[in-house]
Each structure stands twice: as C-alpha cells, then as structure tokens.
C-alpha cells in the first residue's frame, strides 16, 4: 500500500489521468481551429450584410440576428444533429438515387448503407474525428455570427472620409474595400473580438454536450466514487475537487488572455488616429 504524496503521484499518473490531461489539449485544439474559422465565417457574414443586393444583405442580417436572439446552447444541440442529417441526406441523394422509400419513417431517419457518415465500417478514430469536426463547425457557425456582428460594426466605424478619399483617387469598390477599409477596421474590431475570445474560452466546456470526450467528461468520470474491486486507487466522490480544478484552469486561462489582449491593444493603438485606444476599449468592453 502507498500513502500520502507517493500515493497521489501514482494516482495522478494513471492512464485515465493521462487521457484527462490530453483532453485539455482537445480544448486548446478546438480553440485553435475554431477561432480562425469563426473569424472567416464572421467576415463572410459581415460582407454579406454590407452588400447592396437586398436578399443577400437580409440573409446576412438574419444570420446575425437569429443566432444572437436564441440561447446558444440550443444552437449547439440543434446543429450537431442537423448537420449530421443534412450530410447523410446529401450523400443519400447522390449515392442512392433509386431508393424510393421515404427517409423519415415515423421516428426514424433512414438512409441507404452507402450514405452513412462516417461509413459503418470506419475505425473508431474516424468516428471521433467526425464528431469533433461537427463540433468545430457548430462552434464556427455560432461564433461566426458574433464575429460578423463585431466586424460589421467595425467596418462602419472606419471614418467615411477615408472611403471618400479612396473614391476620389479613382479606386473601384473592390479596391476600396480591400485596400482601405479592411486594413483599418481591425483596430475598431479588436475590443469586440477580444471580448469574443473570452466568451469562446468560456463556451468550450459545452463540447461535452456535443458528445466529445473533453475535460468535463473526464472530470465526471474520474471524480466518481471508485471501489477497490475496479481500481487500484479507490476513493470516494471527488468530483467536486475535479471541477474545482477545472474552475481554476478557466480562471487562469481567461486571466492570461486578458493580459495578453490588453498588451496587443496597446501595441495596436500606437500611431492610430483615434483618441486613445483606451477610450475605445472601455466603450467596447
């Protein structure tokens, strides 16, 4: 039998605990992929909302308004199933055109074998990757709408004189957009985007709801009471302590992000023709 510190050090390095530490990597990976993807979606949404063509701008604005008006978690739960079914439906249409039964039979959603995504014979890691990819797309759609909102505001915040000057120089719409508007909008977008980053960090535990084995999953699993029959390291219900650790992890993570973003803002404000990035930041936060 082991006691005290030695017991703890053995306990904290079991295989399952290693998986637990690995899942922190999953969270960071999600952030690393989602942040740029959401920014891309947001950029597309903001561009769409700016277009002069009414249906396109309406589509962009509806996307922004709808995603913000409804609880986000509802979107997460919705998109995971909806995306999966949409994908299988498309595959079904493409691969089994001769299929004549309806896809929705009562409470079932039935597509032909070839249209299953991922294929039934696929290895386990493919299923997990597929689940993770669905989660990333869902996050990107939801946070893309937030980013679109921020970028749309930032594009409107660029002084109009700048665009008029560009037009006076004979630049086309497209040139004005890419050479004058886009390079200048970031300073206006940064307060909103840094806020969004904080929100994105705090949304990562929702991965658990999307069926990914993330930190919440492992904390629940490892923290539960264990009897000597099933493990070498029996203990009572420790879930409280595991979640306390997660709480501290998130606190530290948001605090570090706050400091880094603050520095970035100060750096970017240098030489900008706005009355102190500081005032902007306070207004945006």
């Amino acid at each position: 039998m082991l006691f005290g510190l030695k017991w703890l050090s053995c306990y904290l390095t079991t295989g399952k605990h290693m998986a637990f530490y690995g899942s922190f990597g999953t969270v960071l990976l999600l952030l690393a992929i989602t942040a740029p993807t959401a920014l891309l979606f947001g950029f597309g949404g903001a561009m769409l909302a700016r277009v002069r063509f009414l249906p396109a701008s309406l589509l962009g604005k509806t996307y922004i308004a709808l995603v913000r008006g409804v609880p986000d978690i509802a979107f997460f739960l919705f998109f995971v199933i909806a995306l999966d079914q949409a994908l299988e439906w498309l595959m079904h249409k493409a691969k089994c055109p001769e299929w004549d039964e309806p896809i929705r039979q009562g409470s079932d959603f039935i597509v032909c074998q070839a249209a299953k995504v991922p294929p039934g014979s696929a290895p386990q890691w493919l299923h997990e990757t597929y689940g993770f990819a669905l989660a990333v797309i869902t996050f990107a759609i939801v946070f893309g709408a937030f980013a679109a909102n921020v970028l749309f505001g930032a594009m409107r915040a660029v002084p109009h004189d700048q665009l008029e000057t560009a037009a006076a120089y004979g630049m086309t719409q497209r040139q004005t957009f890419w050479r004058v508007l886009v390079p200048q909008m970031w300073i206006y977008a940064l307060p909103g985007l840094s806020n969004l980053w904080m929100v994105l960090i705090k949304a990562t535990p929702l991965l658990f709801l999307l069926g990914v084995e993330d930190i919440v999953y492992w904390a629940r699993d490892l923290g539960g009471a264990k009897t000597p029959r099933f493990t070498d390291y029996p203990h009572g219900d420790w879930r409280m302590w595991y979640f306390l650790a997660l709480l501290v992890f998130y606190l530290v993570f948001t605090r570090i992000s706050e400091i880094v973003l603050d520095r970035l803002m100060r750096r970017l404000s240098v030489g900008q023709a706005i009355s102190g990035g500081d005032a902007k930041r306070r207004a945006g936060a």
Binding site: K202, P205, F208, V216, L246, L247, Y250, T254
Partner: peptide, 8 residues
Amino acid sequence: SPLFIQFF
C-alpha cells in the same frame, strides 16, 4: 469561469 463549470 464558465457558468457550465460553476453549475457542475
């Protein structure tokens, strides 16, 4: 910290 973790 996330509300989700606070609940748990």
